[in-house]
């Protein structure tokens, strides 16, 4: 496996980064490279210019803040500030890929993880034999071949649903300055386009949590065959803010899922139904059953859609029950 020839740009400041992105419109941004460069080795949508974000002080280091986009997953896993502020994020980070990959992979990279699909994540030779797919060289989706089709490749990041459950906002920076977008509105339901809210040249600087994040209990459940290495085949994060006592009435809730669609997404209706209730087995079952109805997994990951759908119920139920202080 070899990475094809490309030009690597290493801007040392945001201005240099904006210059590079403007000068080379056909580029990819490089965080840790643990996703992008694997795809490049398989000649998946290789671009001639790669702009590294590793040398931008705004994205890494102490000053950039605990949720700077350039922080490695290893740093998220072991950060004492995050352990206080949003402990479930550290636990979710610790479940991603392998210890070696977590030393390199970044928060920003995980949130921008490319979508995945059987028909896409294959070698160039394999795709030749397969007439490729919509997301690579062909004009038709192999999962759901319908006219004017949209890519249904699966988003498999673990951090996005957890951050959504904490109510995180993405802080973006471009030549025109900074702006904020709720992470739950950042993505677009299309496995190729993927982002609703990113303008050309914009970079993700960091994530910000709301003032009350510390009042929230968030729990994440992940489905995968092996306890390391594997991407989620389904993932559900549930967040609750207690009205009064932990374990008592729920004042506010958030439910988010990953690996069930081409984007991570929130389920506001399901969350709404939890408000005013106490977490009990039947409430958890109800949440699980509702989520199971809402998810539409595609036949493009290693486990079958039917099984992943069934497991949405179990994941949601267990995530909610795990919010109880006793668990």
């Amino acid at each position: 496996m070899r990475i094809p020839d490309l030009a690597l740009h290493r801007p040392g400041s945001l201005d240099e980064a904006f210059e590079a992105t403007a000068a080379h419109p056909d580029h990819d941004l490089l965080g840790g490279g643990t996703d992008l460069l694997c795809n490049y080795k398989w000649r998946l949508n290789v671009r001639p210019h790669v702009i590294s974000l590793r040398h931008l002080p705004e994205l890494q280091g102490e000053a950039a803040g605990p949720l700077a986009a350039g922080r490695t997953l290893h740093e998220l896993e072991h950060c004492p500030v995050l352990a206080q502020l949003c402990p479930e994020l550290s636990r979710a980070a610790a479940q991603i890929a392998t210890p070696l990959i977590r030393r390199t992979a970044t928060l920003g990279g995980n949130l921008h993880l490319d979508t995945r699909c059987w028909h896409f994540n294959q070698t160039a030779e394999w795709r030749l034999a397969h007439d490729s797919c919509l997301k690579a060289e062909a004009d038709q989706c192999r999962v759901q071949p319908v006219p004017g089709d949209v890519c249904v490749a699966t988003y498999s990041g673990d951090l996005a649903p957890v951050l959504m459950a904490y109510g995180a906002e993405a802080v973006l920076v471009g030549p025109d300055g900074e702006r904020r977008v709720p992470l739950s509105e950042y993505y677009a339901l299309d496995g190729i386009r993927r982002f609703a809210e990113r303008k050309p040249g914009e970079l993700m600087l960091r994530l910000d949590l709301p003032q009350d994040a510390g009042d929230w209990t968030v729990r994440y459940q992940k489905l995968r065959l092996r306890e390391t290495f594997d991407f989620p085949e389904g993932g559900v994060a549930v967040g609750v803010r207690w009205a009064d006592q932990p374990g008592g009435e729920i004042a506010e809730a958030r439910v988010a899922s990953t690996a069930y669609d081409s984007v991570p997404r929130v389920h506001p209706d399901l969350a709404e139904r939890l408000v005013g209730r106490q977490i009990q087995e039947d409430v958890a079952e109800e949440l699980g059953a509702s989520l199971r109805e809402e998810v539409r997994p595609m036949k493009n990951t290693s486990m079958s859609p039917a099984y992943r759908k069934k497991m949405a119920r179990v994941l949601a139920k267990r995530a909610l029950l795990a919010c109880l202080p006793s668990s």
């Binding site: 392998t98 092996r226 390391t228």
Partner: peptide, 8 residues
């Protein structure tokens, strides 16, 4: 192709 990891 899922070979059990050391964790498994």
């Amino acid at each position: 192709y899922k070979i059990p990891s050391p964790v498994d």
